[in-house]
Write a protein that binds this DNA or RNA. Structure first.
Lengths: 105, 105
DNA sequence: TAAAAATGCAACCATATGGTTGCATAATGT
DNA sequence: ACATTATGCAACCATATGGTTGCATTTTTA
């Protein structure tokens, strides 16, 4: 996973509206835009732009169905984000381990 | 962990310069600001502002040592971010499981 | 065939963001 | 003491961002 992709992923999650959208979608149901834009406290077009941001970051996928557009979470993006953080933590722990061995000498 | 804290954490990680800083720090050594600002391709004050953003998001801590200021990663923030993503994935998986059982009926 | 519903597109606006430069200040080395 | 080093603070600027409104388009429903 490229650095750029990771940055885009975290940037996408780093906004209250977008994170709220992701949380609602994580419950599984693929909601259409109209449903999603409610409860967000902003206009439909405002929500649309945030959803587009999630699409660009590959956090979400759009599936047109008739006149509606279903919005579905892409769990792979979440997995990649988690894996990236885990790799940072692994480097950190490795260093702590080395430091521990050094002080025990 | 509050929603706001999660948003701030991801927003902090969602920038190429800040992510680069975090990656360098994940190697363990607590670097001082001057060292960090090099290799970033921006001015010292530019780097300073990004580091401050990381401090505000609790991703990093500052420790003044003489005339220097050491910058150290706070691995707890990483753990919280990873845990948050994991909880989203858990909800997602749970839903998939329910769907599977439904179709198997 | 019309009306309504769900969405798309574009222009616009206020504010946030990422960066710069200039100068001040505190700690260190000679 | 004095020059140097590491940093802090503030003003400033261009662009990105998050939101709005208005209107056009496509699909469903009556």
């Amino acid at each position: 996973m490229s650095q750029l992709a990771v940055v885009q992923l975290f940037k996408a999650l780093g906004d209250p509206v977008r994170l709220q959208i992701v949380q609602r979608l994580s419950h599984g149901a693929a909601l259409c835009m109209g449903e999603l834009s409610k409860d967000l406290g902003i206009s439909r077009q405002g929500a649309r732009k945030q959803i587009q941001a999630l699409v660009s970051a590959n956090v979400v996928q759009l599936h047109p169905v008739g006149r509606e557009v279903k919005v579905q979470l892409d769990a792979a993006a979440l997995a990649q984000g988690r894996a990236f953080i885990a790799s940072l933590e692994a480097q950190w722990d490795q260093r702590l381990q080395a430091l521990k061995q050094f002080t025990e000498q």
